[in-house]
């Protein structure tokens, strides 16, 4: 096994052993259930949200509608909660000196942390998807869906598209996590990194709201959280999806490169 994989495996085990990890996972599991309960207690609903007109008609829409709701703030918070802590906690816990004097390179250790953060982000997204599917179909059945172009999509096909949508949604979230890793490495402060990451995500949102040229906001990270909408158009809008992929990749690569530069050469004497 390569050094980075060794580090990755143990980072995952560490995440599994930490309470912090379950805040995000738990929220992802509970949110769709809460959504259904709130809908059950009142008449109307967010029918004007993308795919919202499907609510109460098919449970398949629930997770997708919830994605729209968490895409402005909640998902970023959950990503930052773990990724913003992943390097900083080693400083706070003074454990860096223990792991950096073994046989793995610093780069391999940071790679392990990066991959573990990304895994957590993807896992949280899919937990939300699974919880949405279960809660949604229990409440509203397992029926076909009417997509954003008004075309009926079969249940099985919707299921596949939903899996793909969760994947596409994960991409910008991974980029947010990458930024949180940079802050975590740079500031060595967990709380600061989490807050900083939220400011960063909300800042992109704000800039996207300010710029009038629509082409400019297409290349901000905030817009990529809607990239998966392309899957629910007829025909599928690949431009949205491909753009979500490369813009997110760019927004992930730059902070990660900086984080590596810092982590590899930094003095470890902060205890």
């Amino acid at each position: 096994m390569t050094g980075a994989l060794v580090a990755y495996r143990w980072e995952l085990r560490k995440l599994v052993a930490q309470k912090r990890t379950y805040i995000g996972l738990g929220a992802a599991a509970v949110l769709p259930v809460v959504f259904v309960m709130v809908m059950a207690l009142q008449k109307g609903g967010p029918y004007d949200a993308p795919l919202g007109h499907n609510l109460r008609r098919t449970g398949l829409a629930l997770a997708l509608v919830v994605l729209n709701f968490v895409s402005r703030f909640g998902a970023q918070l959950v990503a930052a909660l773990v990724a913003g802590d992943i390097v900083a906690s080693e400083h706070a816990g003074k454990t860096l000196k223990m792991i950096l004097t073994r046989s793995l390179r610093r780069g391999q250790i940071l790679t392990g942390k990066t991959l573990a953060s990304f895994t957590y982000v993807v896992a949280t997204t899919f937990v939300l998807g699974a919880a949405g599917l279960i809660a949604g179909s229990a409440a509203w059945g397992f029926n076909p869906l009417t997509n954003l172009s008004g075309v009926r999509v079969s249940t099985l096909h919707t299921l596949w598209l939903s899996v793909a949508a969760l994947g596409v949604f994960s991409l910008p979230l991974i980029a947010v996590a990458a930024f949180a890793i940079l802050l975590s490495t740079l500031t060595r402060n967990s709380a600061g990194s989490i807050v900083g990451t939220l400011v960063y995500a909300l800042g992109q949102e704000a800039i996207a709201g300010l710029v009038h040229q629509s082409w400019a906001k297409h290349y901000l990270l905030s817009d990529q959280f809607d990239g998966w909408h392309g899957l629910f158009m007829s025909p599928i809008d690949w431009t949205l999806i491909v753009r979500a992929a490369w813009v997110s990749a760019l927004f992930a690569a730059v902070p990660l490169a900086l984080a590596y530069g810092i982590f590899k050469s930094r003095d470890v004497a902060d205890d």
């Binding site: 050094g3 060794v6 580090a7 495996r9 143990w10 085990r13 560490k14 052993a17 930490q18 309470k19 816990g93 003074k94 454990t95 000196k97 223990m98 792991i99 073994r102 046989s103 793995l104 250790i109 205890d271």
Partner: peptide, 20 residues
């Protein structure tokens, strides 16, 4: 210092893994 949320043995296993 060690990871407080892991057992002593798990901490040693982690470090041994980091020693390949």
């Amino acid at each position: 210092y060690f990871y407080p949320y892991l057992s002593g043995r798990k901490n040693l296993e982690l470090l041994a893994a980091f020693d390949r």
